[in-house]
């Protein structure tokens, strides 16, 4: 172990770190401590409620037991709807993200203007959360699954476009050059030299996003954008806690299943 360390550490081996490192450590610790103290002292909470929280949680949990499966058919229907939202939205987003990735990758974008347009699309899509997109689209399309699909899609475009764009930037340029030397058109070069190289990343990223979207779709209903969240919201509003716990269990099953499916697909395709 010793000889793996730099010389100065072996020399003064009674302390594990140099003075500078130690000062840095204590400094950062102090900073963290001060920041936490500031947050704790100024946050706007009623501390009696905080001390009361464990018993409140226990109380709520008690009311949730046992889960009530009587509404299971409509829960499962809503789960199916949730899966459809995630799947359709991922498919649409994948299609839209392809040209966006193309113009936001430095080595394929036609010019500086398109590059910035591409980057702007990516940043605005990625920085606005699905729920905020959903709020907007519920206002436009009215409550329901369509608003949910569009919201998930808008959020996914940035994610997919960014990762795909990075994959395009990482390709081997040499086959591209070889096809240029053959006199192939730009589009055919994309088809033959770029698409095959980014295809693995394309599938990996799409599957990953589908998995994430499955999770995100479960909450759309809370702002009225369809799926299982609608039922959850209804059950919470009517204080039907046994049904709430039933919904939570189905969501858990859905997400775990989604993870199993996506890791299976990943293994199968890559």
């Amino acid at each position: 172990m010793m000889n793996a360390q730099p010389l100065h550490q072996t020399l003064d081996h009674w302390s594990r770190f140099t003075l500078r490192q130690r000062l840095m450590r204590y400094g950062s610790m102090m900073l963290v401590f001060l920041v936490v103290a500031w947050a704790l002292s100024s946050i706007d909470v009623i501390w009696e409620w905080v001390w009361d929280a464990p018993s409140q949680m226990g109380d709520l949990f008690g009311r949730m037991m046992p889960p009530d499966p009587s509404n299971l058919p409509s829960i499962l229907e809503a789960i199916w709807q949730t899966v459809n939202i995630a799947t359709l939205a991922t498919m649409f987003a994948v299609v839209v993200s392809l040209p966006v990735a193309y113009i936001s990758a430095q080595n394929t974008t036609p010019n500086a203007v398109t590059l910035w347009i591409g980057r702007f699309i990516l940043v605005s899509s990625r920085s606005v959360n699905t729920i905020i997109w959903a709020l907007l689209f519920v206002a436009i399309f009215g409550p329901g699954i369509v608003a949910g699909i569009v919201a998930i899609m808008f959020r996914s475009i940035g994610f997919l476009g960014k990762l795909l764009g990075e994959a395009i930037e990482e390709i081997d340029q040499r086959p591209v050059e070889a096809l240029e030397a053959c006199g192939a058109s730009r589009f055919k070069i994309v088809l033959y030299a770029i698409v095959p190289q980014v295809l693995p990343a394309f599938f990996a990223v799409s599957i990953l996003r589908w998995d994430i979207n499955l999770r995100e779709s479960t909450v759309l209903g809370l702002v009225g954008a369809g799926g299982i969240g609608m039922i959850l919201q209804g059950a919470i509003d009517t204080f039907n806690w046994p049904e709430v716990s039933m919904v939570l269990i189905t969501i858990l099953a859905l997400v775990v299943l989604g993870e199993v499916v996506s890791s299976y697909l990943r293994k199968k395709i890559l």
Binding site: R174, A178, A184, A193, L199
Partner: peptide, 21 residues
């Protein structure tokens, strides 16, 4: 020198890519 083939395509597709023009 480094062949510059498209690794993930078949030999036939690589060969035919000479006809892309």
């Amino acid at each position: 020198q480094s062949f510059n083939l498209i690794d993930r395509l078949t030999v036939m597709e690589n060969v035919q890519s000479g006809r892309l023009g």
